[in-house]
């Protein structure tokens, strides 16, 4: 069976581009705080979602709706309505993180396929089987903290499909529990759907040196010949204890393209590309690349050479935790 390519779409145009470029599945969200990419000008209103699902289905692709933030106390109805509307739009599944929402979806829409978001940080077979047994979860998006052997160990102990990230931004925190953005701006990806919200980001060109500020804190200063800094606190460059460096995480991007055969052997069903905040051009290029890779694998051909470096955050790549060389 060909591994499924699951692609991001921040706009209807990106959804159409992903489908045309060969995506088996596209994930997207509503234009509110119910999804973890709640950025200006991004995402789908209700009618755009229905049209997007129709377009994908007409081309043989599936649509997953990410409702993967955690409901605010007293305001759960916003998240419940998003689940109801995803079902109405004809979406093939919803991606949820919060146990209360999983319970609501399982009780209210028993036919709706449930995927467990990476935000739920389910990193062992026991918790995955709990979600499957309790709510009927059919697929889990694994946190980006597991090695390939650990993923194989999980798949050996569960019938739940596993989906793993293969390309895009990385996150240094325990998945789903980031406090850095909240500390600097008062807004977080988990509650408000915005990591380092653009409204709190400022860039200033200072005679070729580029300063990046988040919530008033200077988080990086890039020299003239360096790539522009990524505006998240976790990838900032700081001076502390007489040393200057990336205190939390290097500004590198995940690229596990060459690990696809090992991930397939480990029992992974689907490969996820990060980047709903990126452009239609990015989506089309990355999707084409990964679709060519899984088709080559299925046909027994060597994987094509990766050519995605310039599209990555910080223009540098890593295989992340899949190869835990530090252990």
């Amino acid at each position: 069976m060909v591994m499924e390519i699951v692609c991001p779409a921040g706009t209807p145009a990106a959804l159409r581009a992903a489908v045309r470029a060969g995506a088996h599945t596209v994930y997207c969200g509503f234009n509110d705080e119910t999804n973890a990419r709640n950025f200006p000008g991004l995402n789908f209103d209700r009618s755009e979602m229905r049209e997007g699902v129709d377009f994908a289905h007409a081309h043989g692709a599936r649509v997953l709706v990410a409702i993967n933030t955690f409901p605010r106390a007293g305001d759960q109805s916003i998240w419940h309505r998003a689940i109801d509307d995803a079902k109405l739009s004809g979406a093939d599944a919803v991606i949820l993180a919060d146990a209360g929402l999983l319970d609501y979806a399982a009780r209210t829409h028993p036919g709706l396929r449930l995927h467990l978001s990476v935000q739920a940080a389910a990193a062992n077979a026991d918790i995955i089987n709990f979600y499957a047994g309790t709510f009927g979860v059919k697929r889990v998006v694994l946190p980006r903290v597991l090695s390939v052997p650990e993923i194989a160990a999980i798949n050996a102990e569960t019938d739940v499909e596993t989906e793993v990230f293969v390309f895009g931004g990385l996150c240094v925190m325990a998945e789903g529990r980031c406090s850095l953005s909240s500390y600097a701006t008062g807004l977080s990806p988990n509650m408000n759907g915005v990591c380092s919200p653009a409204s709190h980001v400022k860039y200033h060109d200072n005679n070729g040196e580029l300063d990046a500020k988040l919530g008033g804190f200077t988080i990086h200063r890039a020299a003239k010949d360096e790539p522009a800094p990524y505006p998240t606190l976790c990838k900032g460059c700081f001076s502390a204890g007489g040393q200057t460096g990336h205190l939390f995480e290097d500004p590198v991007s995940l690229n596990a393209e060459q690990l696809i055969p090992q991930l397939q052997k480990a029992g992974v069903r689907a490969l996820k590309i990060e980047g709903r905040q990126r452009s239609k051009s990015y989506v089309a290029q990355v999707v084409r690349n990964f679709r060519a890779a899984v088709d080559a694998l299925e046909a027994g051909r060597p994987l094509p050479e990766g050519m995605l470096a310039r599209l990555s955050e910080g223009q540098a790549m890593t295989t992340g935790a899949y190869k835990k060389t530090w252990r």
Partner: peptide, 29 residues
Amino acid sequence: DGDALFFSRDLVIEGDTGAVLALRNAVDD
């Protein structure tokens, strides 16, 4: 890709980053 041009310093943005992002996304769509 706008982000790629930004990271490579071909593009420089200043001022209201949220507005720039909204414009980029609106034009892209």
